[in-house]
Each structure stands twice: as C-alpha cells, then as structure tokens.
Design a binder for these strands. Structure first.
Lengths: 193, 193
DNA sequence: TCGCGGAGAGAACCGGCGTTCCCTAGGGTA
DNA sequence: TACCCTAGGGAACGCCGGTTCTCTCCGCGA
C-alpha cells in the first residue's frame, strides 16, 4: 500500500468517524482501526491529530461544494439554480448518515479552542456565501439577497440536524421563493422589454 | 455559604466557562477555581459533570427565553413583536461574550455522544419554535411562516458566531420583513374591514 | 544464505481530567 | 480544656488518549 492510498484510507476513516461522532470522541486508534493504517504510518502522514482534522475538513470542503455544484449546475435557468441549492440540501438532509453541518459542529466543539478549526469553518462558510452570491448575481439579483439565502440554508442545516428531519429544506426553499419574488418585483431579473 | 448559594456560584462559573470555551475544554477543577466551591461540595450538588452540564443548559434555557420575551413583550403590536425577536438577536450578537448559540455548540460537541445533551438542544429549539408560532398566531399569520422565521434566526445565530459579527441579525430582520409582507398579502393580519 | 532496511503491531510513556479520599483546622459543647 | 463533627484543600487514583518506542517480521540485494 503506497503513501497516497494510505492517506486516502486514513482520510476516509477520519471523515466517517469525526463526522458521525465528533472530533474529540474519536481517538487516533479508532482511525487506525477503521482505516487499517498503522499508527506509525498515520503519524508519518499527519504529524498531529490536529493536522489530520484539518486535512479532513479541507477535503470535505472540496467534495461538499463539488456535490452541491454538480446538482445546481444541471439547471440552466439562474432562478432555478438558486432553488436547486435548497433541493440539494433536502437530498443531503435525507441521507441516513446526515448529522448536521460538519463545520458548524466542529466550530461548536473546538472553535473556541483551536484557531485553525475556527478559520476552517469561516473559510467554508465564506466559500458557500461566495457561491450563493455568484448564483444571485447571475440571476441579476442583489447581493443582500444572497446573504439572506445563506441564513436560510444555515438555519435549515442546524434545524435538520437537531430535529433529525429533512423538512427544513422545503421550508427554506419556500421562504427563498418568497424572497426571490420580492427581489424580482424590486429589480426584475428579466426586464419586460 | 449555604447550599443554594454554592449551587448558584457553581452554575455561574459553569455557564461562563462552558459557554466561552466549550464543555470538554473545561475541567471540574476550572469550575472550582472560578466559583470558589470546593470539589467535594461540587460533587454533593452535582453527582457527575454531565449533571452539571445539564443543569447549566436548563438554567440558561430559562434565562435566555426570559431575556428574549422581556424585549419582545415591550411591544404591543403583534407584527412589531415578531421583528423585535430579530432586534434582540442583534443585541445579543453584539455582546462581547457572544460565542454563538450554546445549544447549537453543545449539540455539535456532544450531540452524537450524549443523548441527554441532544435532547436538551431539541427541547430548547422546540421551545423557541413554539414561541415564534405563538407570535405569528397572535399576528394572524400562518404557522409555516413561524418555521421560516426559525430558520432565519438559527441561520443568523450560526453565521454571527462563525463570522464574529452581529450583521446577520439585520439581514435576518430584513428577510423577515419580506416574508411578513408576503404572508400579509396572502392572508392580511388586519382585515381591511 | 546472510544481513539490513523499512513497516506494522502493540506496548509504553505521559499528561490531563473525572472522581474519591485523607488530613487538617476551626468552632461548638461539656 | 478536651472532644467531636463538619467542611475544605488538595493529593491520590484510575482511566483515557495523543504520541513515541521497541520488537518482530518480511522482502530484497550481495
């Protein structure tokens, strides 16, 4: 097993365990047990647990945003793309392994203690906000609307996690429809010509 | 120092430390150091750390909702009361000690491990949702609107915590205004007579 | 066949923390 | 003054988990 393969196995196990149980509840030995990568190798790949956590959040950030983008960009219409974000959240919330947002959870757990984890959470949420701003800009809608959509999405993630139901995605979608309509009335996306 | 006073001191210290640093980052000895209540007494009052955490969340739930209600119920108009919720969030977010929502943070930290903490978070959020539903019902607005307002509020708490800015409260308030207007158009709160 | 270098398993080390225990001091009482 | 009883401080205990170390084994080259 070469270095790359071991790294992937370790990160797979880290993602599975850290996400489902929380970071502090998982020991390096648990990672070793699930991944089959020996402790020695683990520490060659990630000098400390904190670095492993960082790599886990980094990799998940990339894959999370890619999964979202794939779903959203199947649509052509800019307005539909915005709503597709909430539809995708609903799909995500419905997955059996769903346990809330990894970054919100990590921030709650270690944001006060670890500056790097707080920074990772900020980075991820900034990237998500930037994406929403791109989507609203493409639809000719103002930036403040994107920030409101961000609040709906974050609220849906939290509520879906704590209440363990995917319903908040549909609620957020409905609210987004209202906000889009209101913004459309103020500054129509497609001028009447 | 009698039993009641010691209990209050211990809970004051617990709230201060657990909220600012996270639960697992605080040891019983830290509680003792800040409260001045000896370990022996602490364990007479709370047989385990978990019971202390539970008592902390319980007490904070009561005081958090009382603070909110005090601010909201200074207004008479049902519509104003709803918006007052978001104004109060802005005041809260602006406090120097603000570090996000204690229940969202606790859930992220221990929700997967401790069933009682997950239940506390659910209980608190259910109570908040019930309050929002009461406010919208009093304004003659439909229940789904309350659930959407809940998403805005939760999203604002998370975003204000991670980005360390009170701005999300105003963004959520603006979105709430739009949603209220839309709901008012559909089913006017004050019929035209 | 004989070393040798690297890798893995798991024990060992060490610090932290929840919980318990011991020792002392102080105050009330005969 | 002598004796208890209580409370508090803080050391002690046991466990856990991050990190390191050691021992063994395997494959490869001379």
């Amino acid at each position: 097993m070469d270095r790359e393969a071991a790294r992937d196995l370790a990160l797979d196990a880290a993602e599975e365990l850290f996400y489902s149980r929380g970071i502090q509840a998982v020991g390096m030995d648990d990672i070793r047990g699930l991944s089959g990568v020996s402790l020695k190798r683990l520490y060659q790949l990630f000098a400390t647990k904190e670095l492993l956590v960082e790599a886990y959040l980094e990799r998940r950030d990339v894959s999370w945003r890619r999964r979202l983008a794939r779903h959203v960009e199947a649509f052509e219409d800019p307005g539909e793309r915005i709503l597709a974000v909430f539809d995708w959240l609903g799909l995500w919330f419905g997955e059996p392994a769903f346990r809330g947002c990894a970054w919100i959870n990590s921030y709650g757990e270690l944001g006060a203690t670890s500056a790097t984890i707080a920074a990772q959470a900020r980075k991820h949420k900034l990237a998500f906000r930037r994406y929403l701003r791109e989507l609203t800009a493409a639809a000719g809608l103002p930036e403040p609307l994107a920030d409101q959509l961000l609040l709906l999405a974050e609220g849906a993630m939290v509520t879906a996690g704590i209440f363990a139901t995917p319903a908040p995605a549909a609620q957020a979608r409905a609210a987004a429809v209202q906000l889009l309509a209101a913004a459309g009335r103020a500054r129509p996306a497609v001028p009447a010509e």
